[in-house]
């Protein structure tokens, strides 16, 4: 088997007495779409944050293409091709959509200690921003302030910003959270396109989407991996059914 693009070895993170990531190991092969599922509070977001450097693990290691990145600050991980979207939208609210994306492109196109020329007139950056916005269907909204975009549009912009950093590994934390039916369908269609180009780690609650998209699925409960495998294997796994899928169905049928 090829060297994994992402390898996580015995990762542990504690918040006081709470073990949010519990001796977690997993691998993501180049080109695959690897879904991470698990009940609320399972530690999915915490895991993504350790991968992209917003949180530092207590122990264990993270390798990207064989390189140990465990202690790198997040901006250096971005340079290595890791990009994330945030479950709770995290954008520059007082900037336009185009500015948000152009800044992401700027971070990966030469240095930014340039003090004189108008950055909004740099055509390559504006071009890159336009392309990323077009991908997620926001080209018409380029000049709108983020604070004036709808929730759905902000979710799409999250993705455009990640794309503009020209990543090799996309880590998407519940990109469908809070989207309506049509918006969700658009997002699934988009992810189907993106998976052809990028290796993707997808955290998602929408089981239908996960089983439709994923090459492999890892199930987290209390910060531990309880199962990992192809969608069919996960569907028929007894422990997963007990620990998660059954409960999840109960939850969704109530809602």
């Amino acid at each position: 088997m090829a060297e994994p693009l992402l390898r996580i070895a015995n990762l542990t993170l504690r918040f006081g007495g709470l073990v949010a990531t519990d001796n977690l190991s997993m691998e993501v092969a180049p080109g695959e779409l690897h879904a991470i599922i698990g009940p609320n509070g399972a530690g999915k977001t915490t895991l993504i944050s350790q991968l992209t450097g917003q949180l530092m693990p207590n122990s264990g290691a993270i390798y990207v293409a064989g390189q140990d990145i465990t202690r790198l600050p997040s901006y250096e991980r971005s340079a290595l091709g890791l990009a994330r979207s945030f479950q709770i939208t995290s954008l520059l609210r007082d900037f336009t959509a185009a500015d948000n994306v152009a800044l992401a492109a700027q971070a990966h196109a030469g240095h930014s200690f340039r003090f004189w020329a108008d950055a909004r007139k740099e055509q390559p950056l504006r071009e890159a921003a336009r392309a990323a916005l077009k991908r997620v269907g926001l080209e018409e909204r380029a000049d709108v302030l983020v604070s004036e975009l709808s929730h759905g549009e902000q979710r799409e912009l999250e993705l455009a910003v990640a794309l503009a950093t020209r990543p090799q590994l996309l880590l998407l934390d519940e990109p469908m959270a809070g989207l309506g039916v049509t918006e969700s369908q658009r997002m699934v269609a988009l992810l189907k396109e993106l998976r052809k180009e990028f290796t993707i780690v997808l955290v998602e609650h929408d089981m239908e989407a996960v089983f439709a998209l994923a090459d492999r699925i890892t199930v987290l409960v209390y910060g531990r991996v309880i199962a990992s495998g192809k969608p069919d294997e996960i569907r028929s796994d007894e422990e997963v059914k007990r620990a998660y899928l059954g409960e999840q169905h109960a939850v969704t049928s109530q809602g």
Partner: peptide, 8 residues
């Protein structure tokens, strides 16, 4: 946080 995440 967002700026660090995109590489600054």
């Amino acid at each position: 946080q967002r700026m660090q995440a995109i590489g600054f």
